[in-house]
Design a protein around this nucleic acid. Sequence first.
DNA 1: AAATATGGAGTGAACATTCATTCCGTTTTG
DNA 2: CAAAACGGAATGAATGTTCACTCCATATTT
Lengths: 191, 191
Amino acid sequence: MAKSDKRDEIVRAALELIAEHGFHGAPMAMIADRAGVGAGTIYRYFENKDVLINELYREIEERIYPVILDGYAPEKPIRERFLHLGTALLRYFIENPLEFRYVEQFHNSPYGVVFRRDKLLGKREGCDVYRELFEEGVSRQVMKDLPLVVLFALSFGPLLTVARDHILGFVALDPPLIARTIEACWDGIRR
Amino acid sequence: MAKSDKRDEIVRAALELIAEHGFHGAPMAMIADRAGVGAGTIYRYFENKDVLINELYREIEERIYPVILDGYAPEKPIRERFLHLGTALLRYFIENPLEFRYVEQFHNSPYGVVFRRDKLLGKREGCDVYRELFEEGVSRQVMKDLPLVVLFALSFGPLLTVARDHILGFVALDPPLIARTIEACWDGIRR
DNA sequence: AAATATGGAGTGAACATTCATTCCGTTTTG
DNA sequence: CAAAACGGAATGAATGTTCACTCCATATTT
């Protein structure tokens, strides 16, 4: 196995196990095992478990970005752009349940709080497309005049909840239902 | 200290520590310590940590219920009832950040998934007021004709997100902003 | 004084991490 | 060109720590 393969295997194994069993249900030994690698080998690639966890999150985020932006047209009306971004994100999560579960675990942990704080304080790149869209929506009076954080909550709150419910099998989201859900989100934030 | 006092102290200490540091950041010894009680004493009241965690959740839920239902009038229009329930819940969480953080931790853990499944399958008492309201809303064509789970997501998703953001200090929710947020949720689900 | 409750040291299991050793592809030497 | 030497990647047993839970000597209640 080539060097980079090992790293990839470790990351993949960590994603699978943590997504399924949470951070504390995925001991390093188990990750090593599933990656087909010695326990010590992980530490050749990642300083410690924390670093592995954060690195994995970063990688997932980077995978999501291009998918969401694919077909995004900044010249279209705000409503259409919102529907595009919402649908793309929800679809991505539904099609990649492991990554979704991982991201969720991450956000609902001490890692996530630090991350969130950094992001809101502008220390991070990232959800700039969303932020820009919301800022434009508010200033053009297409969206309600609410704090950005609230607009985020009204959009991502339902989206993440519904993705989880789908993945856990509590509802079966098909394309038309996805579309209607995102439109309902839009009704929540539009003027 | 009287017998029941000890139990209360244990529950209180567990709530504080778990809400702040998560399940794994709150060892039994630490809980005992903060409760001013010996480590072994906890096991006189709770069979093990799992039981303590579940019991605590149940107690929190029971505390929330009457508060939310206070002033709830089933004869009022659906919109008003929704605003009442939403506002009451959001207010409760904002005023009781420890309980909110605890509930969140709980829902985003293996405990929560089991719980959620039972609830949605109707094996639990609980969110019946919400369920009834949504069912009535749909059948009277006041709300969008979406699956219950999606309507739940559109309501509770933003609500919980915004409560977390407030508690973490990312936004300052005052009564008018709370009202506008819940109204925005309503816009999302109403026809 | 018997019965019951409590405290906290003790126990063993689980875990993240380390490090002496092995392994293997490459380079140097004869 | 074969053989020997080298270096760094990989390994997994060993280590030290943390934790949930137990147990029994002591304290409290009846």
